[in-house]
Design a protein around this nucleic acid. Structure first.
Length: 569
RNA sequence: CGGGGCGUGGCGCAGUCCGGUUUAGCGCGCCUGCUUUGGGAGCAGGAGGCCCCGGGUUCAAAUCCCGGCGCCCCGACCA
């Protein structure tokens, strides 16, 4: 491609509304352009990268035996009602009405649609296993879109769905997909981990997230420091052993204290001079209109993912009004003593002695609470988030944490959707059986942002060869110099004939401008055609990744470039 | 949804507090010409703006008041 013919629109200054490096660089390099919050145009340069990533994904999906199809973006509400997600998915589901008032969803994911398709067309175990996928725009009305295409309302996703006659077959295929994902992210140049995760709104039992290591990432991963153990999970779902605050303290008598305006754990612990770990945090959740209390140690956060599993997937934090009705006190003063409702508690609360919690009276707390003596618990569960420093639930070693970007997630769905939607096939003995399903997603557009997060410097993007918009850029230092122009053009022609994706900067610009732009858009190899051409008959090859430069004679340049491209690919 | 900030040519901003001196300004980018040509050139000339929208106050509004809308950042969702 010629620069003068390409719609490359680089910006000298970053837009003021972008904060994250990848977001700033994507806009500055002219990969994307914002239309509205969380909605972006993929400009030609950005689209080239997207297509590169898609090609890798398609290649690996084919290797995994999956076949591509294209499902509609618009899907009728009835299908979502069958699975129950028309309600469950909530505000995140983009909804539209047609002229007759019929409701539709803009697909955020396609379990319902694919299940509907397969139940109508796959009638026999002979057609199984089956794996279908698509790469398509998805819509999610995110609470807070941010970071450019990292969390957009409209984004590109690869979603695959597999159908099996048995759990064993699904297990086997899940491992195949796990491997395919590993290869995809390796080929895109990521440092990443596959970690155990929570299945959230998609559902199912076993699920892994693939997380690229990045300090700027929104996901927190907890992993075991013992390499032989290898346990790793998202912070929400990680299971560990929280050191008990066991104590042989003697139990003291309950005591009520005045704590005016001290509603938070921090305030109470500072005011009373006790560590947060001696507090019992009492949170109220509402499930189907019934309020239940959830207890966790004051220095811990509740994992809503774990709580949903222990309690009910529909549970939500109670409103201040509901809290007042249930406890008679304002938010911040709820406590388990004398509370007439179901009480569940985190395991970490079990051994506490002489704890502090709300008195169910505004501006008052109780001291010296002893679980079991002063209140009874309807059930202990693992519902707190573990964190670095806790012990691994498997091997007992210390847990560490790190941040990352979720690139994809794979799920064993089992029969969740097939049962709800009556998706059955004829088994080997003629019996009707539910499909056993798996689903596998990759945030294709997010991969681009994540790749930039891990590959950039102060001058711009540093692409791995596998997903770079161009493999090589030729920079004739002075395009109006006939000798330079002709050599550059000859190189360009030769590389094109050899199928190397090449961008020639044929603009009538000064060298500095061209170098800056080349660095910004991050092409892995730059070929500079300049004064060394006449002095020594050489051109310069410069690697974007480390700036290493090498002079090669013009007539050897093509071969050297080809070698480099092949070796990096 | 709660907290904070912003909205002025394509991009980045000043002006707004304290209404009039602005023909609405600056830098970048864009166009023309000349010079320049290895890390975002110089000079000269030029184009480009419903000052987010609607109402109000006033002789007079980018500026003050009321009401909307949009965008960004920080917290609860997810690829």
């Amino acid at each position: 491609m010629r620069w003068t013919q390409s719609f490359i629109t680089t910006l000298r200054e970053p837009p003021s509304d972008a904060d994250l490096v990848s977001h700033r660089l994507m806009i500055r390099a002219g990969l994307i352009s914002k239309l509205s919050s969380g909605i972006y145009t993929f400009l030609p340069l950005g689209l080239r990268v997207l297509k590169k990533v898609e090609a890798i994904v398609r290649d690996e999906m084919a290797r995994a035996g999956a076949e591509e199809l294209l499902l509609p973006i618009l899907s009728p509400a009835e299908l979502w009602e069958e699975s129950g997600r028309w309600g469950e998915y909530g505000k995140e589901l983009m909804r539209v009405k047609d002229r007759h008032g019929r409701e539709f969803a803009l697909g955020p994911t396609h379990e319902e649609i694919i299940t509907d398709l397969v139940r109508n067309r796959a009638k026999s175990y002979r057609q199984l296993p089956l794996c279908l996928y698509q790469i398509q725009t998805k819509f999610r009305d995110e609470i807070r879109p941010r970071f450019g295409v990292m969390r957009a309302r409209e984004f590109m996703m690869k979603d695959a769905y597999s159908f099996h006659e048995s759990e064993e077959c699904l297990d086997k295929y899940y491992r195949v997909m796990h491997e395919a994902y590993t290869r995809i992210f390796e080929r895109c140049g990521f440092r990443f981990r596959a970690v155990l995760a929570d299945s959230g709104l998609i559902g199912g039992d076993v699920t892994h997230e693939f997380v690229a290591l990045a300090d700027s990432g929104e996901s927190v991963v907890i992993s075991c420091s013992n390499p032989d153990c290898g346990y790793a999970a998202t912070a929400e779902s990680a299971e560990g052993i929280i050191a008990r605050v066991t104590s042989d303290e003697k139990e003291n008598a309950l005591e009520k204290v005045h704590t005016p305006g001290m509603g938070s754990v921090e305030e109470v612990s500072a005011f009373l001079g006790v560590s947060p770990s001696r507090l019992i945090k009492t949170l109220l959740y509402t499930v189907d209109g019934v309020t239940v209390s959830v207890l966790v140690r004051g220095d811990r956060e509740i994992s809503e993912a774990k709580l949903m599993r222990a309690l009910d997937p529909g549970a939500r934090l109670s409103t201040p009004g509901e809290i007042l009705d249930a406890t008679g006190a304002a938010v911040g003063y709820a406590g388990p003593v004398g509370l007439d409702m179901k009480i569940i508690a985190d395991e970490g609360v079990k051994g506490m002695v002489n704890a502090v919690s709300g008195a169910n009276e505004t501006d008052y707390h109780l001291l010296n609470i002893v679980p079991g003596r002063d209140f009874s618990v309807d059930g202990y569960f693992d519902i707190a988030c573990v964190r670095a420093g806790d012990r691994c639930g498997r091997c007992g070693s210390e847990l560490a944490d790190y941040r990352g970007i979720e690139l994809g997630q794979i799920f064993k769905l089992g029969t969740k959707y097939s049962e709800k939607m009556g998706a059955v096939f004829s088994g080997r003995n003629g019996e009707q059986r539910f499909f056993v399903m798996g689903c596998y997603g990759i945030g294709v557009s997010r991969i681009i942002a994540a790749a930039i997060e891990s590959g950039h410097d102060k001058d711009g993007i540093i692409w791995p060869m596998s997903i770079a918009p161009y493999c090589v850029t030729i920079v004739p230092v002075n395009y109006s110099d006939p000798a330079i122009r002709e050599s550059a053009e000859a190189l360009y022609g030769a590389l094109r004939r050899d199928g190397v994706e090449t961008l020639i900067d044929d603009r009538d610009e000064r060298a500095g401008v061209k170098f800056k732009d080349a660095d910004l858009i991050g092409v892995p190899l730059r070929v500079t055609v300049g004064k060394k051409l006449s002095s020594s008959g050489t051109v310069e090859l410069t690697k974007r990744s480390d700036g290493q430069t090498e002079d090669v004679p013009v007539n050897e340049a093509v071969n050297r470039i080809m070698d480099f491209v092949a070796q990096e690919a």
